[in-house]
Measured scan of single mutants.
Amino acid sequence: MSIQHFRVALIPFFAAFCLPVFAHPETLVKVKDAEDQLGARVGYIELDLNSGKILESFRPEERFPMMSTFKVLLCGAVLSRVDAGQEQLGRRIHYSQNDLVEYSPVTEKHLTDGMTVRELCSAAITMSDNTAANLLLTTIGGPKELTAFLHNMGDHVTRLDRWEPELNEAIPNDERDTTMPAAMATTLRKLLTGELLTLASRQQLIDWMEADKVAGPLLRSALPAGWFIADKSGAGERGSRGIIAALGPDGKPSRIVVIYTTGSQATMDERNRQIAEIGASLIKHW
């Protein structure tokens, strides 16, 4: 067993022997301040990774656009098919120029040779490549099948209805392509620590998230040296922004954090800054 596999296998073990965790309302004060600064709703939840206990939450059962955070769930569904012998990570998928959609920095470079399922998941999570996500959605049967996968996990809230990039439209009061912070946090925890996926697939999923290259201005910008984070960000229309993450000190994750916002007129930089400040408060009061 590799060191990384050992780390993920012992996530519940280490967490069980940690000192009790206590909620700190100071972080919620910052979440509410972010709402004021952005002029928009902000949803927040913080779960203990081992027990699933909610440590703090704000608007945990209000719907927010998922945006690209759905790509972690998508690759979880792909990995479940791999575990069941219905898919192979090494299978190569070929596609054409007509398949390319807006923001496809990886797939646009491989029109000639195609990409493997493993490479597509890596591109979808680490670079948020939209064509990679659409190609992977095709392998599982489309958005409705991802929703069905989530329902089978016990998540009857999260739903995907459309493809990239239309799913980022974020129309107010439109339930399409949305989740709730509580539902997303619980589902992410199941994917990373539950028995739904094999140990190898859980490790692969967290490795992809740990290698995320496009979430630097968010929670990662607030992390002290030595902290662990595996995350996936999302951005959408109407001032929408979000991030889902597993993080913790001492090089291992111990909490799940989900943050979503929508309806702001603020710039992307300002949305990023507010999420980073929430992260800084979380870490300060850990």
Rank of each mutant, 00 (worst) to 15 (best):
M127F: 03
L111Q: 01
S281D: 00
A222K: 15
T131Y: 15
L74G: 09
L188F: 01
N152P: 12
A185L: 03
G226F: 13
S104G: 07
T158K: 10
A123S: 00
A266F: 15
L150S: 04
M127G: 11
T69W: 01
A133F: 05
L196Y: 05
H24G: 09
M268S: 13
G43P: 05
V82I: 09
N272Y: 12
G114W: 00
L196K: 05
V106P: 10
T139S: 04
D250W: 04
G141Q: 15
P105I: 09
M153Q: 11
G248Y: 07
D161W: 12
L49Y: 13
F228H: 12
A185C: 07
I54Y: 08
T178R: 08
L73D: 11
E46D: 08
L188E: 05
W163T: 13
T178W: 05
I140S: 11
E61S: 12
R273Y: 14
M209I: 05
M153P: 10
S57T: 10
Q97C: 02
Q274V: 06
L137P: 07
T179G: 12
G279H: 12
V117F: 13
Q265S: 10
A215N: 02
G39F: 02
P253M: 13
T112M: 12
L188C: 11
L247P: 02
V117E: 09
K252T: 02
P60Y: 01
T126I: 04
R81P: 06
Y103T: 03
R255N: 06
P224E: 02
E175M: 06
N130Y: 05
E61T: 10
G234T: 06
K30A: 15
G194V: 08
D33K: 03
Y44P: 13
F149C: 14
E61C: 09
L146D: 12
L146W: 01
M180Y: 00
P65H: 08
G263I: 00
G194N: 11
E46M: 12
N173W: 12
V29S: 06
S51C: 07
W286H: 00
G263P: 07
K144E: 13
A222L: 14
S122D: 06
N152F: 01
L28H: 10
S128Q: 07
R91H: 04
A246I: 11
C75I: 15
I45Q: 09
D269V: 09
T179H: 10
P105C: 12
R176A: 01
M184N: 07
E119L: 08
A211P: 05
T107S: 02
R202P: 07
T69Q: 02
E102I: 09
G216H: 08
P181L: 10
Y44D: 11
F149W: 14
T198S: 13
L146K: 08
G279Y: 00
G248M: 06
M184F: 05
G76V: 06
G39L: 11
G263K: 00
P105Y: 14
S281W: 15
L38A: 07
M67S: 09
G76F: 02
T116M: 10
A215G: 09
D129W: 10
Y44C: 14
R220V: 06
V42F: 00
D33F: 04
F149R: 14
T267H: 11
G234N: 09
Q88P: 12
Y44N: 11
E119A: 14
L111G: 03
G52N: 03
V258Y: 11
S233V: 08
G251K: 12
K71I: 12
N134L: 09
W286A: 06
L191H: 03
L89Q: 00
E166F: 06
S51E: 03
P224V: 06
V106Y: 09
D231S: 04
L49G: 08
P165D: 03
L192I: 05
K109Y: 13
L223Y: 03
R159T: 08
V257K: 03
N168S: 06
G114L: 07
A185Y: 01
I93H: 15
T178P: 09
E210D: 12
K109F: 13
M153H: 11
T131D: 03
E195N: 11
L100M: 15
V117H: 02
R159N: 15
T262N: 06
E164A: 14
K32P: 06
N168T: 12
G234Q: 01
R41N: 13
P143V: 10
T138N: 13
A148S: 09
R255M: 06
V157E: 00
L111F: 10
V106H: 11
